[in-house]
Write a protein that binds this DNA or RNA. Sequence first.
DNA 1: TCCTATAGGGCTGAATTTAGCCGTACTTGA
DNA 2: TCAAGTACGGCTAAATTCAGCCCTATAGGA
Lengths: 128, 128
Amino acid sequence: MTYFCGMYEKKIPVELECGLHVFMEVISGKWKINLIWCIHSGIIRPGELHRRIPRASRRLLDTQLAQLTSLGIITKTVFSQKPAKVEYALTPLGKSLIPVIAVTAKWGEANRPLLEPLLQLPTPTLVQ
Amino acid sequence: MTYFCGMYEKKIPVELECGLHVFMEVISGKWKINLIWCIHSGIIRPGELHRRIPRASRRLLDTQLAQLTSLGIITKTVFSQKPAKVEYALTPLGKSLIPVIAVTAKWGEANRPLLEPLLQLPTPTLVQ
DNA sequence: TCCTATAGGGCTGAATTTAGCCGTACTTGA
DNA sequence: TCAAGTACGGCTAAATTCAGCCCTATAGGA
């Protein structure tokens, strides 16, 4: 099992105090929820996924797919044909995530009119 | 209204394609869900919050509280006493977030036994 | 006077994530 | 032969977030 440039060992310990953090650790990553949702919708091959999420680089999509795979959210099946063919699928754990994501998405859509303009604005921050 | 070191204008546009992203933009930040949950539980003053979340720096807690305030998730009331006194409270929008957070936390707790060990492991990544 | 508590900010550097370029190897179809 | 598709990885630099130190000012109590 090859994993891109490498594996990265965190230097700051992961925060898992409560279930909230567990959930966040799993889905944080710019395109992970899209990927999960696409796979759930039947978009299961790397190329298809990239066409569906064109704003992301193939590079990053591959990495985040690998992260989801290493957490047991999705599985990756490699068909040893020429040319190679790859398919992703949700595991039972991944499927259990679907209704949770649906709830959060519903909240986001309901409050989009309010929040979208605010989220474009500059944010309070530490730097500068 | 003073906002710490400054306001930061993002150079990479925010992703708000679907409700999932709206939700993620609101709560991503290392301690935001803790802060929201604590305020919901009646921990409403900066000092109390810091004692409740001691692993976070006061600095970062203040910043994330300011971010939540600027999005209308919480309100900040400054009592002009000596010494000053500050209280936070959830807005209706913030309160609407509570059941959503509860759902995600429930999922996280249910799958903690499975995921906690995996999340400690090195992650597939681009660098190195 | 000194220690504590209240609330807030300046500053530096590290850690982490993302963007975006390029190249490999193979196969099919025009 | 050439373009386009399949899938994968090397590499650099930017963007973004976070850690952790320092400081101010006020007031109360020992």
